[in-house]
Design a protein around this nucleic acid. Structure first.
Lengths: 202, 202
DNA sequence: AATCCTCTATCTATCAGTAGGTAGGTTGTA
DNA sequence: TACAACCTACCTACTGATAGATAGAGGATT
């Protein structure tokens, strides 16, 4: 059997639906669900663990229809990461709205809830581990998550008595411990290990 | 083109190559190279980042030939993880062969070398993040890595003055921080961040 | 010495399944 | 009518995996 199929066709005008550029119109109901499902899958197994096919199947539409909402997987991945970061920081509130101790406790609780209640990894911890094989814009979003989280914690630690130079490493250290604790607790199938690691911190 | 090949012949005994069961014969040169390349790819992007095709291409054999050495991807993944753990612990030596401070320094240096010199993630940190979507035996190997590493560090911390109850959380905490620090440093493309995080520890 | 057998390591050819992606048509609603 | 949202029907590329064949090496039998 030799190829008898028709040629690809000359035209290649990219005609995709709503361009998911940042700050465009608010996502439609379907677009939201696509992101919800994609996020959950990505947080379970990484960037190649979510597919247009599986997402479409879960929603009840065809895989091609997902492309209407997000033209490429890279765009979808970046949108998921961006939304994740935005929600994460919004849930934390302003870094100087609470007493430093309370703010740190709330920060730890954000990770704890993701691990224990949602039973998922941190999206950007996952993406961060895979950073070397991610599309550029997705990698950039993962980077932005950590940059903004470090800035948030830096402010908190600076207010709690750390010198300006010491606040940033302290922030990075807490984030690193939290991401690592999630990995360890999940791998060992022992949620209590997460608490044990963070209790030790003080 | 229709089939013109000679008849299959009577025999059809399942004839797979060397069964890669643990503690079989030492791996052949080719099997070693397969594991080397697979490990590097997995440490760069996770479990779905290494494929029989790419490994074969790099060695210069056909994808099917890789199956001769490792019947399935799961077997290959588990073999890579097992070898990784064995080498890691062997490089560390006995946990009571050195003064505790030196032993801890050596442990940290093992991660640091992987990040800075090899420019790769810890294999089992990567697999640990993806644990929810790994084949059973591979997940088990990742678990074994952390279990044995915690035991090693627990011994060290117990010798350095920690109570038996406090030694294990201390061990888990160090491992978590190291894995998280690798992710952060890689994501931010800032190797110095790894050192900053670990310098803060004490 | 010649024959036979078995093993290793590879090949070619092919499979079913899934990946992301594209072209163009249909439908419901404002 | 216009557009948003979805469809059918493909495509190319790649996934892990299998079947059957083969070249060459080594040992055993005749």
């Amino acid at each position: 059997m030799v190829q008898t199929r028709p040629q690809p066709g000359p035209r290649s005008t990219a005609r995709t639906g709503p361009q998911k550029s940042p700050l465009a119109s608010p996502p439609s109901e379907t677009a939201s669900r696509i992101m919800d499902i994609g996020e959950r899958m990505a947080r379970g197994g990484g960037y190649n663990s979510f597919s247009f096919r599986e997402i479409a199947a879960e929603i009840g539409i065809k895989p091609a229809s997902v492309h209407y909402h997000f033209a490429t997987k890279e765009l979808l991945g970046a949108a998921i990461a961006s939304r994740y970061t935005e929600r994460f920081l919004q849930a934390l509130g302003a870094p100087d709205a609470l007493a430093p101790d309370i703010a740190i406790g709330r920060y730890i609780e954000a990770y704890r809830g993701a691990l224990i209640q949602e039973e998922l990894m941190c999206l950007c911890g996952m993406f961060g581990a895979q950073i070397a094989c991610l599309p550029e814009t997705v990698a950039h979003e993962a980077q932005a998550f950590f940059e903004r989280n470090m800035a948030w914690l830096e402010t908190v630690f600076a207010r709690s008595g750390f010198t300006p130079e010491a606040a940033r490493p302290e922030a990075a250290s807490l984030i690193a411990t939290l991401e690592g604790a999630m990995i360890l607790a999940r791998t060992m199938q022992d949620p209590a290990l997460f608490d044990a690691i963070l209790a030790r911190r003080n």
